[in-house]
Amino acid sequence: MADGSSMAISFAPPRRIVRHGSMHRLMRHRSTVALLMCSPLFLLIAGLVVYPAIYAIYLSMLNKNMTEFVGLHNFAFLLKRDTFRLVIFQSCLFAVSAVVLKAFIGFVLAHLMHNIPSGRQRIWRGLLLVPWVIPLALSTLCWWWLFDPSYSAFNYALNVFGFPSVAWLGEAWPARLCMIAVNVWFGTPFFMIMYLAALKSVPEQLYEAAAIDGAGAIQKMLFVTLPMMRNIISITVLFSLIVTFANFDIVRILTNGGPESKTHVFATYAFQVGIQSGNIPLGASVSLFMFPLLAVFAFFVLRNVNRRTKEIAA
């Protein structure tokens, strides 16, 4: 920021003196400075995001010892394995249900928050943001204690109410639901904050106009709130879907893919195959698997968002 302000000051005098002819040159100068300011970002992105992404595609087409080019053989091999088909199913189940639940609960929470006077919102917002603030690896560890089969807090509570203990992480379906629950717990506050910001930006006049036209609460929600929040909803859902598909910490700490690989998702499976078992090309193929689908989804969501933004601007 300091650089920016000093630059603005140093630019002012020459402009005042030579107003006409050198405007073009100045603009060019200015854009070089702007490019220079952006260059660290571009270097970082090119070196540690774009290059690795392309490198991952290259890696995924090598054989196990990375000596031979095998084309799409790794993907075909993966698709034939039952474990990997299970991984696809689990990843989709995990990501889609977690994102839907997060979006829904976040939406409800944002509305509840919007109902209470703004002076009181601060403390409630702070309390509800706690899950998002604790490092995910540590809070997942705490969830792991809570899910402990023998003498866990959850099982104790169940026993008090007369229910039998549950092997939370020992069986496939309870473990899958636990993973989703932890992810929802962690991710909902983010949705709440985004939706609350969106709700606050809806002009009050729209609701008044709707009320004059005789709209009830549900109609106001359907025809005023939802259309106004559509862009925020689609962008948060898109981001969250990508991040949730890439989730690693929760599965790794809670179940480490077990029992019998029935809770692996793409990231943990790629880690196990690629880094722990040392088959880097196969691991790269696993991690690449979801990318085309996500890219297509992202393309359509962003195109719609762009179109709506233009409509609002027009």
Binding site: V49, A56, I280, G283, S287
Partner: peptide
């Protein structure tokens, strides 16, 4: 939009 899980290998 590039997932982290794609980058780590």
């Amino acid at each position: 939009l590039i997932p982290n899980s794609l980058l780590f290998i």
